[in-house]
Design a protein around this nucleic acid. Structure first.
Length: 112
DNA sequence: CATCTGACCTAAT
DNA sequence: GATTAGGCCAGAT
Protein backbone atom coordinates (compact mmCIF):
# COMPACT_ATOMS: atom_id res chain seq x y z
CA UNK A 1 0.00 0.00 0.00
CA UNK A 2 1.30 3.47 -0.92
CA UNK A 3 1.86 5.96 1.84
CA UNK A 4 -0.26 9.07 2.22
CA UNK A 5 0.83 12.10 0.18
CA UNK A 6 0.80 14.35 3.23
CA UNK A 7 3.33 12.15 5.02
CA UNK A 8 5.44 11.71 1.92
CA UNK A 9 5.70 15.46 1.53
CA UNK A 10 6.84 15.92 5.12
CA UNK A 11 9.37 13.14 4.86
CA UNK A 12 10.76 14.81 1.75
CA UNK A 13 11.30 17.99 3.74
CA UNK A 14 12.77 16.06 6.65
CA UNK A 15 15.42 14.55 4.39
CA UNK A 16 16.65 18.07 3.67
CA UNK A 17 17.31 18.96 7.32
CA UNK A 18 21.10 19.33 7.66
CA UNK A 19 23.19 17.41 10.15
CA UNK A 20 23.42 19.32 13.41
CA UNK A 21 20.09 21.03 12.90
CA UNK A 22 16.56 20.23 14.05
CA UNK A 23 12.98 21.20 13.21
CA UNK A 24 9.83 21.10 15.30
CA UNK A 25 6.84 18.97 14.38
CA UNK A 26 4.77 22.01 13.59
CA UNK A 27 7.57 23.55 11.56
CA UNK A 28 7.96 20.36 9.57
CA UNK A 29 4.26 20.33 8.74
CA UNK A 30 4.41 24.00 7.90
CA UNK A 31 7.35 23.62 5.51
CA UNK A 32 5.54 20.73 3.87
CA UNK A 33 2.59 22.98 3.13
CA UNK A 34 0.42 21.62 5.93
CA UNK A 35 0.13 24.42 8.50
CA UNK A 36 -1.39 23.44 11.83
CA UNK A 37 -0.77 19.77 11.26
CA UNK A 38 1.90 19.11 13.89
CA UNK A 39 0.11 16.00 15.14
CA UNK A 40 0.05 14.60 11.64
CA UNK A 41 3.82 15.05 11.51
CA UNK A 42 4.11 12.95 14.65
CA UNK A 43 1.90 10.22 13.27
CA UNK A 44 3.92 10.09 10.08
CA UNK A 45 7.20 9.74 11.92
CA UNK A 46 5.68 6.97 14.01
CA UNK A 47 5.49 4.76 10.96
CA UNK A 48 8.28 6.22 8.84
CA UNK A 49 11.24 4.36 7.43
CA UNK A 50 14.28 4.12 9.65
CA UNK A 51 16.28 5.77 6.85
CA UNK A 52 14.87 9.25 7.45
CA UNK A 53 16.53 11.49 10.08
CA UNK A 54 13.57 11.31 12.49
CA UNK A 55 15.85 12.21 15.38
CA UNK A 56 16.11 15.77 14.06
CA UNK A 57 12.51 16.46 14.99
CA UNK A 58 11.74 17.84 18.44
CA UNK A 59 8.96 19.82 20.08
CA UNK A 60 8.66 23.54 19.43
CA UNK A 61 10.15 24.27 22.84
CA UNK A 62 13.15 22.03 22.21
CA UNK A 63 12.10 19.07 24.36
CA UNK A 64 12.29 15.58 22.93
CA UNK A 65 8.80 14.24 22.37
CA UNK A 66 9.44 10.88 24.05
CA UNK A 67 9.14 10.20 27.72
CA UNK A 68 12.49 10.53 29.45
CA UNK A 69 14.19 7.20 29.93
CA UNK A 70 12.29 5.46 27.14
CA UNK A 71 14.16 3.48 24.52
CA UNK A 72 13.38 6.01 21.80
CA UNK A 73 14.28 8.97 23.98
CA UNK A 74 17.71 7.52 24.62
CA UNK A 75 18.26 6.70 20.97
CA UNK A 76 17.35 10.21 19.89
CA UNK A 77 19.59 11.78 22.52
CA UNK A 78 22.50 9.67 21.34
CA UNK A 79 21.96 10.50 17.69
CA UNK A 80 21.66 14.22 18.37
CA UNK A 81 24.75 14.17 20.54
CA UNK A 82 26.65 12.41 17.77
CA UNK A 83 25.76 15.32 15.51
CA UNK A 84 27.11 17.81 17.98
CA UNK A 85 23.74 18.84 19.38
CA UNK A 86 23.70 19.13 23.13
CA UNK A 87 20.74 17.57 24.91
CA UNK A 88 20.39 18.89 28.44
CA UNK A 89 17.51 17.85 30.66
CA UNK A 90 15.86 16.24 27.68
CA UNK A 91 15.94 19.33 25.57
CA UNK A 92 17.98 21.16 22.97
CA UNK A 93 18.49 24.90 22.60
CA UNK A 94 16.23 25.82 19.71
CA UNK A 95 17.83 29.24 19.50
CA UNK A 96 21.04 27.56 18.41
CA UNK A 97 20.09 24.46 16.47
CA UNK A 98 16.75 25.09 14.80
CA UNK A 99 16.84 24.87 11.04
CA UNK A 100 15.78 28.03 9.21
CA UNK A 101 15.81 27.10 5.54
CA UNK A 102 15.73 29.56 2.69
CA UNK A 103 12.23 28.96 1.37
CA UNK A 104 13.15 29.64 -2.23
CA UNK A 105 15.96 27.09 -2.13
CA UNK A 106 13.74 24.64 -0.27
CA UNK A 107 11.08 24.85 -2.95
CA UNK A 108 13.67 24.24 -5.61
CA UNK A 109 14.99 21.21 -3.74
CA UNK A 110 11.51 19.75 -3.43
CA UNK A 111 10.70 20.36 -7.06
CA UNK A 112 13.84 18.78 -8.40
C1' DC B 1 -22.01 7.18 15.90
C1' DA B 2 -19.48 8.93 20.42
C1' DT B 3 -15.28 9.11 22.83
C1' DC B 4 -10.50 8.70 23.69
C1' DT B 5 -5.78 9.20 22.45
C1' DG B 6 -1.64 11.29 20.92
C1' DA B 7 6.44 11.51 18.57
C1' DC B 8 1.82 18.75 18.88
C1' DC B 9 1.16 24.20 19.08
C1' DT B 10 -0.16 28.82 20.48
C1' DA B 11 -1.72 32.16 23.59
C1' DA B 12 -2.86 33.48 27.97
C1' DT B 13 -2.19 33.33 32.79
C1' DG C 1 10.25 29.51 34.13
C1' DA C 2 5.30 26.44 34.72
C1' DT C 3 0.44 25.42 33.87
C1' DT C 4 -4.04 25.66 31.44
C1' DA C 5 -7.25 25.91 27.73
C1' DG C 6 -8.37 25.49 23.36
C1' DG C 7 -7.32 24.05 18.85
C1' DC C 8 -5.87 20.40 15.84
C1' DC C 9 -7.40 15.64 13.34
C1' DA C 10 -6.48 10.63 11.96
C1' DG C 11 -6.92 6.11 14.21
C1' DA C 12 -8.41 3.22 17.70
C1' DT C 13 -12.06 1.60 20.82
Amino acid sequence: MPKKPACEQMLQVLKLVPVGRVVSYGQLADLAGLPGRARLAGRCLRQCEETVPWHRVVRSDGRLAFSAGSEQFTEQRIRLTDEGINVINGRVKMREVVWKPDLYTLLAELSG
